[in-house]
Amino acid sequence: MSFLVELLVSILIVAGAGFALIGSIGLVRLPDFYTRLHAPTKATTLGMGCLLVASIALISLAEAELSVHELLITLFLFITAPVTAHMLAKTALHYDIGFVRGTRGKELASKARERVSPKENDE
């Protein structure tokens, strides 16, 4: 295996794991649930993407034929990540979880919970 391919795959692997680690650091550091939601949904998708590309490249070279089935996991994760994020945000809204101090537009949350337009007046 050429040095260049090895270097590229190594960089991809470390970058992928690094993104996963940053996602988890965000999960611990960020102040409230809604901000925490951003960390895993984003950091993990790109992290997994990097790892799976590395896996495709390496196993294709090792077995001397193209092995693309890791793409299915990538595709699946990319389809499900926003759905999970949306469902979790919805659950948190209906569970009435508070925002961190300084969040702008906090007052919209009660409107969002009732699923009515923000312009609508309270009775």
Binding site: I13, A17, M48, L51, L52
Partner: peptide
């Protein structure tokens, strides 16, 4: 999943 994929890469197996 990332851990399993890494193990697969380590063993060069799918």
């Amino acid at each position: 999943i990332a851990l399993i994929i890494l193990f697969g890469i380590f063993l060069r197996s799918s």
